[in-house]
Write a protein that binds this DNA or RNA. Structure first.
Length: 225
DNA sequence: AGCTGATCATAT
DNA sequence: ATATGATCAGCT
């Protein structure tokens, strides 16, 4: 593993990310001295961690952005041959108690304030080492995008506060959804119950629907700059 | 084919 | 234990 220093500013980060465009995962793994898994069944975070190292992410602290000094979060985006996202994107854990926050101060909003999206081919018919990295884009939510996120977040948060978490499924939310996020379905966490009591439930995460990240990619191709 | 609920590895 | 990085795999 060759260490890469953190980028000094956003321009340097973007420049580094653009260099990766067109490289295969095998190329980049070889540069970094990393073995390439045959599939991701037991290596689900492999691509993200490879790109982190390549760009010099400060993987030190947990609750901070990937590039702490310049306030940028890194997300790889698994795309098909057409360049469209195949999967939803995990954002952060859903707080289930002690939720005394509003949208402006929410964990979700902070996480999404500035994101470097790095598209990576993820079609299973392409061998992992042959999958190519796409052109990265540095994104902050537009007013419209933030309004959509906010509406979903406020609706979901209200239901959690009312103790209705068990009634929330992945079908709720237009652009944002809540799904399980844990080692397995036996993992438990405290949450607010229907009568305000403490109950145990599965940990959940916020995910961006693939249609939403597809719109982000589209916007950047339509509106360059 | 797409989506939802479940799951896997690693670091701290 | 709980956060990070996500993809898997069965069902509709």
């Amino acid at each position: 593993m060759k260490p890469v220093s953190p980028p000094r500013d956003q321009a340097e980060l973007l420049q580094r990310a653009r260099r990766l465009a067109g490289l295969s995962l095998g190329d980049l793994a070889r540069e970094l001295g990393e073995p390439v898994p045959a599939d991701f069944r037991r290596h689900k975070g492999w691509v993200g961690q490879l790109i982190e190292r390549a760009l010099g992410a400060t993987a030190a602290s947990l609750a901070a952005p990937d590039f702490e000094a310049i306030g940028v979060e890194l997300k790889t985006l698994p795309v098909d041959r057409r360049g469209l996202p195949r999967e939803s994107t995990y954002v952060c854990t859903v707080p289930l108690e002690a939720i005394a926050e509003d949208w402006e101060n929410s964990w979700l909003r902070r996480k999404l304030a500035c994101v470097l999206w790095v598209p990576v081919q993820a079609e299973k018919t392409i061998a992992v080492a042959e999958r190519r990295i796409g052109s990265a884009l540095l994104w902050s939510p537009s007013a419209g995008e933030e309004a959509l996120l906010r509406r979903d977040w406020e609706e979901l948060t209200e239901r959690i506060l009312l103790g209705e978490l068990e009634q929330i499924s992945a079908r709720h939310g237009e652009v944002l959804q809540i799904r399980p996020k844990a080692a397995d379905s036996r993992a438990l966490r405290h949450a607010v119950g229907p009568d305000g009591e403490r109950v145990l439930t599965n940990p959940r995460g916020y995910y961006l629907r693939a249609a939403f990240t597809a719109a982000i990619l589209r916007r950047h191709f339509v509106l360059p700059g």
